[in-house]
Amino acid sequence: MKSQTIRRWSTVHTWTSLICTVFLLMLAVTGLPLIFHHKIDHLLGNTPEFKQMPANTPSLSLQQLVLAAEAHRPGEVMQYFGWDDDTPNAVTAIMATTAETEPNASHTFVLDARTGEALEKASANGGFMMIMLRLHTDMYAGPWGMLFLGAMGLLFVAAIVSGVVLYAPFMRRLKFASVRQTKSSRVRWLDLHNLIGVVTLTWALVVGVTGVFNACADLVITAWRNDSLAAMIAPYRDAPPLLSRAPATRLLDIAEAAVPGMEADFIAFPGTRFSSEHHYAVFMKGASHLTSHLLTPVLIDASDLHVTAIVDRPWYMDALLMSQPLHFGDYGGMPMKVLWAVLDVLTIIVLGSGVYLWWVRRRATTLVRVDTSQAQTAR
């Protein structure tokens, strides 16, 4: 009975690993540069260079920046404004032909908050890093590609769990971290495969589970829109279309007064999927490393700028917001990124060695069958 159980777990481990390995290798390889995307953008010259100005140079108002963005992309509408702590004088602007345009068809650029000068951000609209990001998130297949990669993530988690089950009886025969150097190449690779797999176990589970959450991002956001956001904008359901909107000048002051102690992360303009046809949505974040990834939306009526709601953040949105930075090691600065990269490389070795071990075993089994068949024929 015990041997049958082990064989079943071995079958689960073999096939879940084989089915997802090619895609996991692609994710591991593309994920490696994404861990250091800020540094790589700088090396490739994709980081906008701002003019040198006195430190006390004041910033333009939000409405002045909106007008500067619209002048830079005439005929398009504003979708989002965002801020990055690493570049304090920059405001990221995202525009498209319509407010509902999906993200991959929008155009991203940077505004100098002091002058309104528009600077192109090549890596956000194409180039090497965008190719890596699209391959890593949806393989250029949109929502279906994201869900497919999420399914591969689930298989990866199943492969990890089944590998742990198989490793337990294996370790009873050997000391931990033993690599039998005097044995065949296949045995040595098996020992290395098991050893590296155990060392990277916790990290692989974390990355696998958070990857599944990230792959379901569109579903999670849709659920949030249909649940929390829909309840907050229900009074506007039968309201006439918004013909004009109030200037965005005071949006940040209004939002900061509504949720003291928090600061703006990004603004969703009316008509986008993170707001409504009648609202600005200012997404506020906390000051600590943890709370800076948990966003609280403040809905502001776009006609007269009064706060209509502070939208509830359900648990599934918290899970998504926490999983995104954890997936790429964005919580602990450069040391954590380096650790993530090392573990990523080790995972590539585990995946590659797993394919090698399966191929060697399959070839050996085929040779035994051929020899047996020839022996029977000779008789």
Rank of each mutant, 00 (worst) to 15 (best):
M1N: 10
I6T: 10
V12A: 10
T16Q: 04
I19F: 11
C20Q: 02
T21H: 00
F23H: 09
L25P: 01
L32A: 14
P58W: 05
P58S: 07
L62I: 04
Q63M: 05
H72C: 08
H72A: 14
H72L: 04
R73M: 13
P74A: 05
V77D: 08
D85M: 15
A90E: 14
A96N: 02
T98P: 00
A113M: 07
T115N: 03
A118C: 07
K121I: 10
G126K: 11
M132A: 08
D138Y: 12
D138G: 02
G145F: 11
M146E: 15
L149Q: 09
G150V: 01
A151C: 12
L154T: 06
L166H: 05
R172H: 12
L174V: 12
L174H: 14
F176G: 11
L190P: 05
D191F: 08
V199Y: 15
T200Q: 08
L201A: 14
T202Y: 13
L205I: 12
G208I: 03
T210G: 06
M232I: 08
R237E: 13
L243S: 11
A248V: 02
I254S: 05
F269P: 03
G271Q: 07
L290A: 14
A302G: 06
S303C: 07
H306T: 13
I310W: 01
D312G: 09
P314S: 06
A319H: 06
A319N: 11
M322P: 03
V350L: 02
V350Y: 02
V360E: 02
R362A: 09
L367I: 13
